[in-house]
Amino acid sequence: MTFNTLFAGMTALLMASLAVAAPVTTAALDNSWQYGTGGGLLGLVVFILDVIVFVEVIKSSRTPAQKLIWCLVVFLFPVIGLIVYYLFSNRDAYQRGSGYETLP
């Protein structure tokens, strides 16, 4: 499985999840910044952190199976998945270099 195939699959999964998201009704507009009405500000923060994790996982040097498992864990359990990823993923061991070579 190539990187482009994996990235296209994750993008399609993300777009599909956004397409089936519950719409905000007009009754919920009075309470739109609080929890329970589509997420509000807290939901936006969790979404941004999830996207950061997806990008970090896809850019890592893990095997495609490991990438898929981590992305599914974070996708299916957004808050708990973030916590589990940051505690148990051993990010330093799988981090790719920045691509720059140090000067002598």
Rank of each mutant, 00 (worst) to 15 (best):
K67Q: 14
T26N: 03
I80T: 15
V45K: 06
N31V: 10
V84C: 02
L76N: 02
P78N: 12
L41E: 02
E101M: 06
A12W: 02
L42D: 09
L72G: 08
K67P: 04
A19L: 15
L6S: 12
V73K: 09
V73Q: 03
P78Q: 04
A8S: 15
S61H: 00
Q34F: 05
Y94W: 05
V53A: 15
A65N: 06
A8G: 07
N90F: 11
L29R: 13
L82N: 08
T102L: 09
A8H: 07
V79K: 04
L18P: 00
N4W: 05
W70M: 02
S32D: 06
T26G: 01
L18I: 11
R96N: 07
G38A: 02
A21K: 12
T63L: 12
Y85V: 04
F3V: 04
E101N: 06
V45W: 06
I48C: 06
Q95V: 04
N31C: 05
T25M: 04
L49I: 05
L18A: 13
A8P: 00
V55P: 00
F75S: 12
T63N: 08
L72W: 03
I80A: 15
L18C: 07
G97F: 03
V79S: 10
G36D: 13
A22M: 07
V45R: 10
F54N: 01
L76V: 14
N90Q: 14
S61A: 04
F47V: 00
G97L: 00
L14S: 14
S60G: 06
N4A: 14
E56G: 03
